[in-house]
Amino acid sequence: MTVLVTGGAGFIGRWVVGHLLNEGNSVVVLDDLSNGSRENLSEFSKRSDLTVKIGDIKDKQTLSDIFRTDIEEIIHLAANINVQESIDNPRKVFENDVIGTFNILEEAKKADARFAFISTCMVYDTASSGEAISETHPTKAASPYAGAKLAGENMVQSYYHAYGLPAVILRPFNTYGPYQKTTGEGGVVPIFVNKELNGETLNIYGDGNQTRDLMYVEDCAEFVVRAAMSDRCTGQILNAGLGKDITINDLAAMICKDRSRIKHIQHIHPQSEIPRLVCDRSKAKKLLGWEPGTSLEEGIGKTREFMNLTRR
Protein backbone atom coordinates (compact mmCIF):
# COMPACT_ATOMS: atom_id res chain seq x y z
CA MET A 1 0.00 0.00 0.00
CA THR A 2 0.93 3.66 -0.26
CA VAL A 3 0.71 5.06 3.26
CA LEU A 4 0.82 8.70 4.39
CA VAL A 5 2.32 9.10 7.86
CA THR A 6 1.80 12.58 9.28
CA GLY A 7 4.37 13.34 11.94
CA GLY A 8 6.50 10.58 10.45
CA ALA A 9 9.79 12.29 11.37
CA GLY A 10 8.85 12.27 15.05
CA PHE A 11 9.70 9.73 17.73
CA ILE A 12 6.87 7.21 17.26
CA GLY A 13 6.44 8.16 13.59
CA ARG A 14 10.00 7.15 12.79
CA TRP A 15 9.39 3.63 14.09
CA VAL A 16 6.02 3.39 12.32
CA VAL A 17 7.70 4.39 9.04
CA GLY A 18 10.37 1.72 9.52
CA HIS A 19 7.77 -0.94 10.26
CA LEU A 20 5.73 0.00 7.16
CA LEU A 21 8.80 -0.07 4.90
CA ASN A 22 9.89 -3.43 6.29
CA GLU A 23 6.49 -4.82 5.35
CA GLY A 24 6.86 -3.67 1.74
CA ASN A 25 4.71 -0.54 1.75
CA SER A 26 5.49 2.75 0.03
CA VAL A 27 5.51 5.59 2.57
CA VAL A 28 4.96 9.33 2.26
CA VAL A 29 5.96 11.31 5.35
CA LEU A 30 4.52 14.76 6.07
CA ASP A 31 6.17 16.60 8.95
CA ASP A 32 6.79 20.26 9.80
CA LEU A 33 9.80 19.25 11.96
CA SER A 34 8.44 21.10 15.00
CA ASN A 35 8.82 17.91 17.06
CA GLY A 36 10.58 15.61 14.61
CA SER A 37 13.82 15.80 12.66
CA ARG A 38 15.28 14.61 9.36
CA GLU A 39 17.93 12.72 11.33
CA ASN A 40 15.25 10.41 12.72
CA LEU A 41 14.69 9.11 9.19
CA SER A 42 18.34 9.04 8.09
CA GLU A 43 18.41 5.23 8.27
CA PHE A 44 15.88 5.12 5.43
CA SER A 45 17.22 8.05 3.37
CA LYS A 46 18.29 5.91 0.40
CA ARG A 47 14.99 4.05 0.14
CA SER A 48 13.16 4.67 -3.13
CA ASP A 49 9.88 3.70 -1.45
CA LEU A 50 10.05 6.63 1.02
CA THR A 51 9.12 10.23 0.19
CA VAL A 52 9.56 12.95 2.81
CA LYS A 53 7.59 16.20 2.51
CA ILE A 54 8.34 19.07 4.88
CA GLY A 55 5.05 20.86 5.46
CA ASP A 56 2.17 21.67 7.76
CA ILE A 57 -1.13 19.80 8.13
CA LYS A 58 -2.82 23.19 8.48
CA ASP A 59 -1.73 24.08 4.91
CA LYS A 60 -4.48 22.90 2.57
CA GLN A 61 -2.34 23.35 -0.56
CA THR A 62 0.38 21.12 0.87
CA LEU A 63 -2.20 18.42 1.57
CA SER A 64 -3.76 18.80 -1.87
CA ASP A 65 -0.36 18.31 -3.49
CA ILE A 66 0.36 15.18 -1.45
CA PHE A 67 -2.99 13.61 -2.28
CA ARG A 68 -2.27 13.81 -5.98
CA THR A 69 -0.47 10.57 -5.17
CA ASP A 70 -2.81 7.63 -4.69
CA ILE A 71 -2.80 7.50 -0.89
CA GLU A 72 -4.52 4.34 0.35
CA GLU A 73 -3.88 4.59 4.10
CA ILE A 74 -3.27 7.49 6.49
CA ILE A 75 -1.63 7.12 9.88
CA HIS A 76 -2.18 10.48 11.54
CA LEU A 77 0.44 11.09 14.23
CA ALA A 78 1.11 14.80 13.72
CA ALA A 79 0.22 16.71 16.87
CA ASN A 80 1.42 19.20 19.44
CA ILE A 81 2.25 16.72 22.18
CA ASN A 82 3.45 18.88 25.06
CA VAL A 83 0.79 18.97 27.80
CA GLN A 84 2.39 21.90 29.61
CA GLU A 85 2.66 23.90 26.39
CA SER A 86 -1.01 23.20 25.64
CA ILE A 87 -1.96 24.79 28.97
CA ASP A 88 0.22 27.81 28.25
CA ASN A 89 -0.82 28.15 24.60
CA PRO A 90 -4.17 26.41 23.98
CA ARG A 91 -4.76 28.09 20.62
CA LYS A 92 -1.69 26.45 19.13
CA VAL A 93 -2.75 22.94 20.13
CA PHE A 94 -6.34 23.56 18.96
CA GLU A 95 -5.29 24.82 15.54
CA ASN A 96 -2.85 21.97 14.95
CA ASP A 97 -4.57 19.01 16.61
CA VAL A 98 -8.18 19.86 15.76
CA ILE A 99 -8.17 21.96 12.59
CA GLY A 100 -5.19 20.03 11.20
CA THR A 101 -7.00 16.74 11.84
CA PHE A 102 -10.10 18.10 10.09
CA ASN A 103 -7.98 19.00 7.04
CA ILE A 104 -6.55 15.47 6.84
CA LEU A 105 -10.01 13.93 7.24
CA GLU A 106 -11.33 15.99 4.33
CA GLU A 107 -8.55 14.68 2.09
CA ALA A 108 -9.09 11.13 3.34
CA LYS A 109 -12.78 11.36 2.48
CA LYS A 110 -12.04 12.51 -1.07
CA ALA A 111 -9.39 9.82 -1.54
CA ASP A 112 -11.48 7.08 0.13
CA ALA A 113 -8.39 6.22 2.17
CA ARG A 114 -8.23 4.27 5.40
CA PHE A 115 -7.59 6.51 8.41
CA ALA A 116 -5.85 5.69 11.70
CA PHE A 117 -5.98 8.47 14.29
CA ILE A 118 -3.32 8.22 16.98
CA SER A 119 -4.87 9.59 20.15
CA THR A 120 -3.49 9.18 23.67
CA CYS A 121 -4.12 7.62 27.07
CA MET A 122 -4.14 11.19 28.43
CA VAL A 123 -7.82 11.46 27.40
CA TYR A 124 -8.81 9.13 30.27
CA ASP A 125 -10.02 10.10 33.71
CA THR A 126 -7.97 8.66 36.54
CA ALA A 127 -8.51 5.06 37.59
CA SER A 128 -8.99 3.74 41.11
CA SER A 129 -6.33 1.54 42.67
CA GLY A 130 -6.04 -1.82 40.92
CA GLU A 131 -8.25 -0.81 37.99
CA ALA A 132 -6.95 -1.23 34.45
CA ILE A 133 -8.35 1.29 31.97
CA SER A 134 -10.39 -0.13 29.11
CA GLU A 135 -11.74 1.74 26.11
CA THR A 136 -15.07 2.27 27.90
CA HIS A 137 -13.43 4.04 30.85
CA PRO A 138 -14.63 7.65 31.35
CA THR A 139 -12.68 10.35 29.55
CA LYS A 140 -11.65 13.72 30.95
CA ALA A 141 -10.16 16.74 29.18
CA ALA A 142 -7.74 17.62 31.99
CA SER A 143 -5.61 19.72 29.62
CA PRO A 144 -6.10 21.44 26.25
CA TYR A 145 -3.93 18.68 24.78
CA ALA A 146 -6.39 16.02 25.99
CA GLY A 147 -9.33 18.19 24.93
CA ALA A 148 -7.92 18.57 21.42
CA LYS A 149 -7.33 14.83 21.13
CA LEU A 150 -10.91 14.10 22.22
CA ALA A 151 -12.18 16.63 19.68
CA GLY A 152 -10.10 14.90 17.02
CA GLU A 153 -11.52 11.53 18.05
CA ASN A 154 -15.06 12.87 17.74
CA MET A 155 -14.34 14.24 14.27
CA VAL A 156 -12.91 10.88 13.16
CA GLN A 157 -15.97 9.06 14.49
CA SER A 158 -18.27 11.51 12.72
CA TYR A 159 -16.56 10.81 9.39
CA TYR A 160 -16.85 7.07 10.00
CA HIS A 161 -20.58 7.31 10.74
CA ALA A 162 -21.59 10.09 8.32
CA TYR A 163 -19.40 9.21 5.32
CA GLY A 164 -18.41 5.60 5.87
CA LEU A 165 -14.72 6.54 6.15
CA PRO A 166 -12.83 3.40 7.24
CA ALA A 167 -11.26 4.74 10.42
CA VAL A 168 -9.82 3.52 13.70
CA ILE A 169 -8.87 5.44 16.86
CA LEU A 170 -5.79 4.26 18.74
CA ARG A 171 -4.91 5.21 22.32
CA PRO A 172 -1.33 4.17 23.09
CA PHE A 173 -0.26 4.47 26.69
CA ASN A 174 3.06 6.10 27.63
CA THR A 175 5.57 5.15 24.95
CA TYR A 176 9.34 5.35 25.33
CA GLY A 177 12.51 4.27 23.59
CA PRO A 178 15.31 5.27 21.19
CA TYR A 179 15.00 8.60 19.33
CA GLN A 180 12.72 10.09 22.01
CA LYS A 181 13.68 13.55 23.19
CA THR A 182 15.36 14.04 26.55
CA THR A 183 14.08 17.60 26.97
CA GLY A 184 10.90 18.80 28.68
CA GLU A 185 8.53 17.49 25.98
CA GLY A 186 10.24 14.10 25.94
CA GLY A 187 9.23 11.02 27.90
CA VAL A 188 10.08 10.28 31.51
CA VAL A 189 12.23 7.24 30.67
CA PRO A 190 14.75 8.94 28.32
CA ILE A 191 14.80 12.04 30.52
CA PHE A 192 15.70 9.95 33.56
CA VAL A 193 18.20 7.79 31.64
CA ASN A 194 19.91 10.87 30.21
CA LYS A 195 20.22 12.46 33.64
CA GLU A 196 21.52 9.24 35.14
CA LEU A 197 24.17 8.94 32.39
CA ASN A 198 25.19 12.56 32.97
CA GLY A 199 25.41 12.15 36.73
CA GLU A 200 22.61 14.68 37.22
CA THR A 201 19.64 14.81 39.61
CA LEU A 202 16.42 13.07 38.57
CA ASN A 203 13.56 15.46 39.35
CA ILE A 204 10.14 14.00 40.13
CA TYR A 205 7.00 16.15 40.06
CA GLY A 206 4.95 15.90 43.26
CA ASP A 207 5.19 12.92 45.58
CA GLY A 208 6.12 10.48 42.81
CA ASN A 209 3.29 8.06 43.60
CA GLN A 210 1.62 8.72 40.26
CA THR A 211 1.88 5.65 38.02
CA ARG A 212 2.43 5.13 34.31
CA ASP A 213 2.02 2.18 31.96
CA LEU A 214 5.22 2.31 29.88
CA MET A 215 5.29 0.63 26.45
CA TYR A 216 8.44 0.19 24.36
CA VAL A 217 8.26 2.06 21.06
CA GLU A 218 8.79 -0.92 18.74
CA ASP A 219 5.80 -2.64 20.34
CA CYS A 220 3.80 0.56 19.87
CA ALA A 221 4.77 0.84 16.19
CA GLU A 222 3.78 -2.76 15.52
CA PHE A 223 0.41 -2.16 17.17
CA VAL A 224 -0.23 1.04 15.18
CA VAL A 225 0.54 -0.57 11.83
CA ARG A 226 -1.42 -3.74 12.51
CA ALA A 227 -4.47 -1.86 13.77
CA ALA A 228 -4.33 0.65 10.89
CA MET A 229 -4.33 -2.15 8.31
CA SER A 230 -6.97 -4.37 9.94
CA ASP A 231 -10.55 -4.44 8.67
CA ARG A 232 -11.57 -5.90 12.04
CA CYS A 233 -10.56 -2.65 13.73
CA THR A 234 -12.56 -0.32 11.50
CA GLY A 235 -14.85 1.87 13.58
CA GLN A 236 -13.16 0.84 16.83
CA ILE A 237 -11.23 2.53 19.63
CA LEU A 238 -8.25 0.48 20.81
CA ASN A 239 -5.84 0.79 23.73
CA ALA A 240 -2.25 -0.40 23.67
CA GLY A 241 0.08 -0.66 26.64
CA LEU A 242 2.27 -2.97 28.66
CA GLY A 243 -0.61 -3.81 31.00
CA LYS A 244 1.45 -3.02 34.10
CA ASP A 245 2.02 0.30 35.82
CA ILE A 246 4.92 1.59 37.89
CA THR A 247 5.19 4.60 40.20
CA ILE A 248 7.53 7.35 39.09
CA ASN A 249 9.40 6.84 42.36
CA ASP A 250 10.04 3.18 41.51
CA LEU A 251 10.95 4.03 37.93
CA ALA A 252 13.55 6.55 39.09
CA ALA A 253 15.00 4.00 41.52
CA MET A 254 15.15 1.38 38.74
CA ILE A 255 17.12 3.75 36.49
CA CYS A 256 19.32 5.44 39.12
CA LYS A 257 20.62 3.38 42.04
CA ASP A 258 21.93 6.46 43.85
CA ARG A 259 18.90 7.61 45.84
CA SER A 260 20.65 10.88 46.75
CA ARG A 261 20.29 11.95 43.11
CA ILE A 262 16.49 11.63 43.14
CA LYS A 263 14.62 14.78 44.14
CA HIS A 264 10.94 15.72 44.42
CA ILE A 265 9.93 19.13 43.07
CA GLN A 266 6.71 21.12 42.83
CA HIS A 267 4.48 20.24 39.89
CA ILE A 268 4.22 22.99 37.26
CA HIS A 269 0.65 22.12 36.25
CA PRO A 270 -0.77 19.71 38.87
CA GLN A 271 -4.30 20.08 37.49
CA SER A 272 -3.25 18.14 34.37
CA GLU A 273 -1.68 15.24 36.28
CA ILE A 274 -3.34 11.82 36.05
CA PRO A 275 -2.58 9.93 39.28
CA ARG A 276 -2.82 6.42 37.85
CA LEU A 277 -2.56 4.94 34.37
CA VAL A 278 -2.55 1.23 33.60
CA CYS A 279 -3.79 -0.23 30.31
CA ASP A 280 -6.41 -2.89 29.70
CA ARG A 281 -5.21 -4.15 26.30
CA SER A 282 -7.57 -7.11 26.05
CA LYS A 283 -9.49 -5.62 23.11
CA ALA A 284 -6.32 -5.31 21.01
CA LYS A 285 -5.46 -8.91 21.85
CA LYS A 286 -8.94 -10.07 20.86
CA LEU A 287 -9.11 -8.18 17.55
CA LEU A 288 -5.45 -8.35 16.49
CA GLY A 289 -3.81 -11.01 18.62
CA TRP A 290 -1.45 -8.21 19.66
CA GLU A 291 0.57 -8.20 22.86
CA PRO A 292 3.73 -6.23 23.69
CA GLY A 293 6.90 -8.29 23.52
CA THR A 294 9.28 -6.06 25.52
CA SER A 295 9.41 -5.90 29.31
CA LEU A 296 10.07 -2.58 31.03
CA GLU A 297 13.52 -3.72 32.19
CA GLU A 298 14.45 -4.84 28.67
CA GLY A 299 13.11 -1.64 27.10
CA ILE A 300 15.01 0.59 29.51
CA GLY A 301 18.15 -1.40 28.73
CA LYS A 302 17.69 -0.90 24.97
CA THR A 303 17.04 2.80 25.50
CA ARG A 304 20.14 3.19 27.66
CA GLU A 305 22.27 1.31 25.08
CA PHE A 306 21.03 3.56 22.25
CA MET A 307 21.65 6.73 24.25
CA ASN A 308 25.13 5.57 25.18
CA LEU A 309 25.97 4.93 21.52
CA THR A 310 24.68 8.32 20.39
CA ARG A 311 26.77 10.09 23.06
CA ARG A 312 30.05 8.81 21.58
Results as ranks from 00 to 15, higher is better:
22 N>S: 11
125 D>R: 13
282 S>P: 08
155 M>I: 15
17 V>E: 01
291 E>Q: 15
279 C>F: 08
86 S>L: 09
32 D>R: 15
172 P>D: 06
4 L>P: 00
289 G>R: 00
299 G>R: 05
126 T>C: 05
72 E>V: 07
211 T>W: 03
241 G>F: 03
70 D>C: 02
128 S>W: 12
302 K>T: 06
287 L>G: 14
277 L>H: 02
200 E>W: 11
229 M>N: 05
43 E>A: 10
115 F>D: 09
61 Q>L: 14
269 H>L: 03
206 G>M: 07
298 E>T: 08
26 S>M: 10
213 D>L: 04
297 E>C: 02
197 L>G: 13
298 E>R: 05
78 A>I: 04
237 I>N: 03
25 N>C: 15
240 A>E: 01
157 Q>A: 14
185 E>F: 12
193 V>G: 04
101 T>P: 02
180 Q>D: 01
186 G>H: 01
4 L>I: 01
267 H>V: 04
45 S>W: 00
176 Y>N: 09
189 V>P: 02
53 K>M: 09
209 N>G: 09
6 T>D: 14
91 R>A: 04
171 R>N: 12
111 A>V: 04
83 V>I: 13
110 K>I: 11
264 H>K: 02
283 K>S: 04
97 D>G: 13
96 N>C: 11
258 D>T: 12
299 G>T: 08
296 L>P: 10
247 T>K: 03
41 L>M: 06
120 T>Y: 10
21 L>C: 07
38 R>E: 12
221 A>S: 14
42 S>G: 00
170 L>D: 10
302 K>I: 03
141 A>C: 11
202 L>G: 04
248 I>T: 10
154 N>G: 12
246 I>P: 02
82 N>H: 08
251 L>A: 13
303 T>R: 08
262 I>F: 00
295 S>H: 00
90 P>V: 04
75 I>L: 08
95 E>P: 01
7 G>C: 09
54 I>E: 15
89 N>H: 05
148 A>M: 05
44 F>N: 05
257 K>M: 05
83 V>E: 01
300 I>D: 01
131 E>D: 10
23 E>N: 15
172 P>T: 06
203 N>V: 04
75 I>M: 07
202 L>H: 02
271 Q>E: 13
52 V>L: 14
251 L>I: 12
25 N>W: 12
253 A>R: 13
200 E>N: 11
203 N>F: 03
284 A>R: 01
170 L>G: 07
204 I>K: 02
155 M>A: 14
280 D>W: 05
230 S>L: 12
285 K>P: 03
262 I>T: 04
45 S>V: 06
162 A>D: 07
74 I>D: 07
236 Q>N: 06
269 H>C: 07
312 R>T: 14
279 C>S: 13
104 I>R: 01
209 N>Y: 06
85 E>Q: 11
160 Y>N: 15
156 V>F: 02
58 K>Y: 06
223 F>Q: 00
68 R>M: 09
125 D>G: 12
11 F>M: 04
272 S>W: 12
306 F>C: 09
92 K>V: 15
87 I>G: 07
149 K>N: 07
85 E>Y: 09
80 N>Y: 05
190 P>L: 04
285 K>N: 14
9 A>N: 04
15 W>T: 06
